[in-house]
Simulated scan of single mutants.
Amino acid sequence: MEKLIIFNNQVKAFLGVDIHYNAAINNFKINGYWVTDVNQFHFAQFRKSFKKLIDKNINRDSQKEVIFLNKIQEDLKRNLLFLNTINYNKIRESCSSVDLKYPEEPPVHNIRDLEETALWDNEGRADYIFQVLSEFLKMESTNHIELSDETWEEIDALYEENNLHVDEIYGKAHLMIIISYQINLIKEVIDYIQSYFDTLEKMGINYSNNEEDIDFSKHTQQLHFNMLKKEVAMFFHTFHQLGLIHGDFNKRKISETEMNKFLSSGFFYYVDVKRELRPLKKLSKEFSGLYRGEAASKISEEELSFIQYLIDILQERKNVLEIEKKDYLERRK
């Protein structure tokens, strides 16, 4: 039991989703580590050791230990769902806590120590963060090291005019790039665990016959929505009203009743308020009340807010693609 507790704690330390924000220094902690003091090498250490951890702690002949590993995999899938929902506009909502006091153990590097951080990070964190800053400022991309103190004062003033804070953007950018490292690692670990299960099955070791066990293969047939149940309904309703969702027969427009039956087929899951996966069933209540062109008084603020959220994340995606395309074209020069 003790070895499994230690194993579980090691996984949480690297692949957990415990995020805290310190407003006094505009910095974030993830799983107890300041994001400015962590880089891809932090995760690379775990990547190298994870396979050995499985071999050391999981006995393939122990039904309970194999099921324990499957539980780890399911936890990681939930963590992945959660991390993929985080964007610049929803970072605060993703934090477990917010601290207004200066930390007793502050980070080694502050959020503007890009030169120091870049020495650690051959993934170009400094360039990434400055690209984010440039995008918010609508300024031409340039090397952050080339900026004078006067330019930084102008940047600060511009942010204040737009009710933004430069350091806050820095902190969020640091967090987002660390989250990207974590997402990549979680995907690798999930895939490796799945390959472990596949290998066991080929060896004739399969514990899925027991009703209390989990069928390791069934999860490949599921589709998980990183949204609440009502948000799933609003998502499909919005694109249905735009004419982007059709039935498969002569491209006719599928009715919302048919769409409800399809989404309740058992293959779809949503995330509830506790961040737990739930099967998507009976969306009639969620679909009712959504605007279909009748009296405008029926348009809810909830539906308007959700559509604005879709616009924001699509715009954010567009910005990322534009930055990456611009970088690619500049490298080709």
Rank of each mutant, 00 (worst) to 15 (best):
H219F: 06
E286D: 15
K281Q: 12
S300N: 13
R275F: 15
Y33N: 11
K71A: 03
D312P: 09
I145Q: 08
N163C: 10
G293P: 14
L228Q: 09
F28L: 01
L175C: 08
F197L: 07
Y207W: 06
A157W: 06
I179A: 01
K274M: 12
Q194M: 12
I145L: 13
K48T: 15
D55L: 11
H165D: 15
H174N: 02
E212L: 13
P106Y: 02
L69S: 04
V35I: 03
L263W: 00
P106M: 07
S288R: 14
E150M: 08
Y159E: 11
V11P: 00
I30F: 01
R278F: 05
G293F: 10
G293Q: 06
D272V: 12
N319I: 07
E322I: 08
K281R: 15
Q73P: 00
Y21V: 06
D37Y: 04
F130W: 14
N26H: 14
P103Y: 06
L175T: 01
R331T: 14
H109V: 09
E303C: 12
L119T: 07
I19D: 01
I58V: 05
G266W: 07
F268H: 10
D312M: 13
Q45C: 11
V98W: 00
K12L: 03
R332N: 10
S288L: 10
E74Y: 11
V11A: 04
K326H: 10
R292A: 10
F287I: 12
I30M: 12
L280Y: 07
H224G: 05
K253E: 11
Y181F: 15
I311A: 07
N87T: 03
Y33G: 03
E104Y: 10
N89R: 14
F46D: 02
K298N: 05
Q222T: 08
G247A: 10
N122C: 10
